[in-house]
């Protein structure tokens, strides 16, 4: 999953990004295309981990870049561009997941191979028995598949803080800024999300 989440340091300022943003503000679409090309995997990866659906993640990733393009004038040039794009994608994903009438798409499109998430949570009777050693159980691929299924049962907010912490490697303050919540709320949500996952993955403990 690392290829989809090339986490960057929140404080790193990319001079190249700054130049591209300035050019894109002036109407240089090639500069903005280069920005898209640089961050498309990360933005798409956030959306996919949040929604677990390729088609939805594709739409959300495109929407995130379009919103970024329209908001370039409001972007602070001294800040890193990646977290700003991730923030947009996460919030779009939360909005999508919280929409009551959201469509129930297939997890993967026809041209995409079947992923592990559904298989992890499916009650396949033919699956291998759990590892008897707890340490090994938690380190098994079986646990990873179960975790993928359990993550879908979290609320969007809990899923977001966990994603930003675990996958994006953001600090509490950065998560708080991304989601526009307090640092204490970030800690509280992380604790509750993990507690929920623990209950969901009780068999692997």
């Amino acid at each position: 999953m690392g290829s989809l989440a090339p986490a960057q340091n929140w404080e790193s300022v990319n001079a190249v990004d700054r130049d591209l943003v300035v050019r894109a503000r002036g109407g240089d679409q090639d500069a903005f295309a280069e920005i898209v090309h640089s961050y498309q995997r990360r933005v798409y990866g956030v959306a996919l981990r949040m929604t677990r659906r390729h088609e939805v993640a594709d739409d959300i990733a495109q929407d995130a870049f379009i919103r970024a393009y329209r908001s370039l004038d409001r972007f602070e040039l001294g800040r890193p561009l990646g977290p700003w794009l991730v923030k947009i994608a996460v919030n779009l994903s939360i909005n999508y997941l919280k929409a009551p009438a959201r469509r129930e798409h297939a997890l993967y499109s026809e041209d995409m191979p079947e992923g592990p998430a559904e298989a992890a949570l499916s009650s396949d009777p033919s699956r291998e028995p759990l590892e008897s050693n707890p340490v090994r159980r938690l380190a098994s691929s079986e646990f990873a598949r179960a975790l993928a299924g359990a993550l879908e049962k979290l609320t969007p907010e809990h899923r977001a803080v966990l994603l930003l912490k675990v996958d994006e490697g953001l600090r509490y303050d950065e998560i708080a800024e991304t989601l526009s919540i307090s640092r204490g709320t970030v800690m509280s949500r992380l604790f509750r999300a993990r507690a929920h996952l623990k209950s969901l993955l009780e068999d692997y403990r």
Binding site: Q29, H37, Y108, G115, A117, A139, F143
Partner: peptide
Amino acid sequence: ASEKIELPEPPEAYWQRFPSKVL
């Protein structure tokens, strides 16, 4: 375990087309 969750990587053609789709 989260690092082990492998989400399918779209084909390279998808990434090649993605910027033009956005534009």
